[in-house]
Structure formats: structure tokens, C-alpha cells
Computed example of a mutant assay.
Amino acid sequence: MGESVLLTSTPPEHKESVIVSSAPQSRPWDVHRLPSAEGRNFLVTGGNAGIGYFTAEQLAATGALVVIGSRNPAKADAALASIRSRVPGARVRHLHLDLADLSTLKSAVDGLALDLGRLDAVVHNAGGALDDPPRRETEDGHELMFGTNHLGHYALTRWLAPLLSAAPAGRVVTVGSFAARSERLDLDDLQSTRDYRPKRTYGRSKLAQMCFGFELDRRLRAAGSTVLSAVAHPGGALDSLTPPRPPVGAPTPGERLRGLPAALMVQGKDAGAWPVVRAVLDSDVQGGQLWGPRVFGLRGQPRREPVPAHMADPAVAARLWAASAELTGTTDPHLGFR
């Protein structure tokens, strides 16, 4: 997509595809008419499926180069093919990225740096969710969900710092979860070694991500960095309400039918990506903000939300940061941002 093209010729069956507009951003935000982002580079971790996929698809329609970070080449290739089939001229590529193996992150980012030179935004989206015991661990011996969802992104941010700082106004957008609202961190058992319950451990790993996103912005401001850090969440996003993207994902007719009653309160993953995309693109977004769906934080157009007190507690965040630094072997209190 070398020119600032409007996707006004989108076929009828592609009506949910994003339309790029060069109109001034003083107008109300429209999820179907996103501002052009030609010349910018975005990385979406876990962009091969779910919220990450739709974030990548929507960002690709703005003319930006979108890099999908994924540890599964086959799934990444399927996502790239799907985006290219829906977004004419899409500039998308794959970066092999395994957040569960911290030792591989620096070399992955080094390769990205050689190709791009700068990164305008990273979307910390990738993550795992386990439904049943037993407790599992990453390559580094960390509990799998906490290690992948939080520690992997914490370490990745450290290596991405020079690329983000090289952009005129870099952004780190951390994707949290509505589930984090009802959780509290156990700072003495971050790895769930004493009491492992999969759903609670998942919620706490997402809470750790969100606390990190807010604390990162405080440290970026203290360092005088031009990079900002914001947090977004998709609300309630169900596969059964998500438009099909074969072979990436396609709910069966039965699944879609069973999901219809839930549409009164929640939405599909395409709409779940809207707050994330706005946090990446909207020039009015500021560091330390939280973005989510308008209706009860579960569905609808993206809007700014108040930050819950337990996510913004600086004392809790400082302890989490110190523990994360120790567990990932990071010593720089600003993660390399200057």
C-alpha cells in the first residue's frame, strides 16, 4: 500500500474491513474510518489469532507496515494470507517471537532492527490461558501464564526500547483483560507456586501486564522519554460472535447461533480490537490512559476509562517491577528508554 488510498471499493462481503481516511482527527473517532498511518511500523505480538489478528488486520488497512510476532510460522502465514486477501496492498510480515523463552528475544529484536530502524508502536497482546491444572512452566522455569503474558512482554520491551525511541512518538500499548478488575496480585506468590488456580492465575497475569503498562509510563515520563505507554482491553470478546477469517478462525453455524443471546452484553473479537487500535493510532491518546469498550466496559465503541485504583497503585507496581527485573535479569530501571 504505497499510496494513501481509501478502501472505498471494498466488496460488500468485506464490509467489516476498516476504511482508511485522511480526515482531520478533530472529528469523532470512527472505527470504520481510521487515520492513515503510512510510513509507520507496528509490531503486534500474538497477531496470528484472536484480538491480535484483528488488531493487525485493522492496522494494516491504514497503510502501515504491520509485523505479526508469533512463535508458530504456519499460523502466522495463515494470518498474513488472510489479511492480504482482505486488505489490498497490505504490508504485513512475520517475526518469529517466543515470549516463553526469554533467551530468544534479543536476537529476534536485533533482526527486526536491521530491517526497520524504528518502531512506531508495539502492541503487547500475545498470551496464553490455561483452563485446567497441572501448573506448567516456560523454558525459563516461570509459571507459563505469568511468564508469557507478563514477563515475556516486560523483557521484550527492554530490547525494543531503542527502536521505539527512534520513532518520533513511539507507543507501547499493553492489552489487558476485563478479568483483571476482580483480581489482586499476590506479590509473595507471583508464580502461583503455593496456590495454583488456572483462571485466577490468568487474571493475575493480565493484571500484572496492566500494572506494568501504567508503571512503564510513569518511568518513561521520569526519564524524559518521547515514548508513551497506554493500556487497552477488549471487554467481552467471544469467538462465536467473531466474523469468520478462515483459516485463522471460523465459528460454526451452531456456535454462532448459541452466541447470539450473549451479543446483548459482549461482542466479537473484531470489535474487541477497537480499543487497542485506537490506543495505537489516536493522536489524542496520552500515556497512562486506559481504553476499553463504551458499554459497561464490555462492548461497543472504544472510549477512555478511569483506571481502577488497584491497577495504578505505585507501591504495588514498584514491587512488581522489581520482581520482574530480577526474574528476567534486567537491571535498567527505565528498561533502556532515554
Score class of each variant (00 low, 15 high):
residue 2 G to Y: 03
residue 78 A to I: 00
residue 190 L to Q: 05
residue 212 F to S: 05
residue 150 H to Q: 11
residue 327 L to D: 10
residue 307 V to I: 14
residue 1 M to F: 02
residue 136 R to I: 10
residue 158 R to I: 05
residue 300 G to C: 05
residue 79 A to T: 04
residue 35 P to H: 01
residue 307 V to S: 07
residue 226 T to E: 08
residue 185 L to D: 05
residue 258 R to A: 15
residue 65 L to M: 13
residue 263 A to T: 11
residue 226 T to I: 07
residue 41 N to H: 15
residue 222 A to P: 11
residue 146 F to C: 09
residue 93 R to F: 01
residue 60 A to N: 08
residue 285 V to G: 07
residue 127 G to Q: 13
residue 219 R to Y: 13
residue 139 E to W: 05
residue 197 R to K: 11
residue 71 R to L: 07
residue 278 R to H: 04
residue 130 L to V: 14
residue 239 D to Y: 12
residue 154 Y to E: 05
residue 4 S to T: 08
residue 4 S to W: 00
residue 1 M to I: 03
residue 120 D to C: 07
residue 220 L to P: 14
residue 131 D to E: 12
residue 301 Q to M: 07
residue 36 S to Q: 01
residue 266 V to G: 01
residue 39 G to M: 12
residue 49 A to W: 03
residue 305 E to T: 00
residue 155 A to C: 09
residue 86 R to H: 07
residue 237 A to F: 06
residue 81 A to H: 11
residue 285 V to K: 02
residue 67 V to T: 09
residue 172 V to A: 12
residue 130 L to H: 11
residue 241 L to E: 06
residue 143 E to M: 11
residue 139 E to K: 15
residue 276 V to K: 03
residue 139 E to V: 12
residue 153 H to E: 09
residue 312 A to M: 04
residue 229 S to G: 12
residue 68 I to K: 01
residue 129 A to D: 04
residue 186 D to Q: 05
residue 268 G to F: 03
residue 225 S to P: 15
residue 205 S to Y: 11
residue 196 Y to T: 06
residue 225 S to V: 13
residue 48 N to A: 14
residue 181 R to Y: 13
residue 252 T to N: 10
residue 149 N to T: 03
residue 193 T to F: 04
residue 129 A to Y: 12
residue 90 A to L: 04
residue 75 K to Q: 13
residue 204 R to P: 00
residue 196 Y to W: 11
residue 156 L to F: 08
residue 179 A to F: 05
residue 66 V to Q: 05
residue 317 A to H: 02
residue 86 R to D: 01
residue 264 L to S: 10
residue 248 V to L: 09
residue 133 P to L: 10
residue 195 D to P: 00
residue 177 S to R: 07
residue 22 S to E: 13
residue 287 G to P: 09
residue 39 G to N: 13
residue 67 V to C: 08
residue 38 E to C: 04
residue 305 E to M: 15
residue 69 G to A: 11
residue 40 R to H: 10
residue 337 F to G: 06
residue 234 P to I: 04
residue 242 T to H: 01
residue 18 V to R: 02
residue 196 Y to G: 02
residue 324 S to K: 09
residue 192 S to Y: 13
residue 333 P to E: 06
residue 141 G to Y: 01
residue 27 R to T: 10
residue 135 R to C: 06
residue 113 A to L: 08
residue 290 L to S: 05
residue 290 L to M: 13
residue 335 L to Y: 06
residue 107 S to F: 02
residue 314 P to A: 04
residue 160 L to D: 02
residue 283 S to M: 00
residue 202 Y to K: 03
residue 207 L to C: 08
residue 316 V to H: 02
residue 4 S to I: 09
residue 296 F to C: 02
residue 175 V to R: 04
residue 311 M to L: 15
residue 162 P to T: 14
residue 153 H to G: 14
residue 195 D to Q: 15
residue 251 P to F: 07
residue 125 N to E: 10
residue 297 G to F: 05
residue 118 R to G: 00
residue 205 S to D: 14
residue 312 A to T: 08
residue 95 L to S: 05
residue 136 R to L: 15
residue 11 P to A: 15
residue 266 V to A: 04
residue 35 P to S: 06
residue 217 D to W: 08
residue 171 R to G: 09
residue 227 V to I: 15
residue 171 R to M: 14
residue 59 L to N: 10
residue 213 G to E: 07
residue 141 G to H: 01
residue 108 A to C: 13
residue 195 D to H: 13
residue 133 P to M: 07
residue 212 F to L: 09
residue 175 V to F: 06
residue 221 R to D: 12
residue 84 R to Q: 11
residue 175 V to P: 01
residue 61 A to I: 00
residue 73 P to H: 08
residue 268 G to N: 03
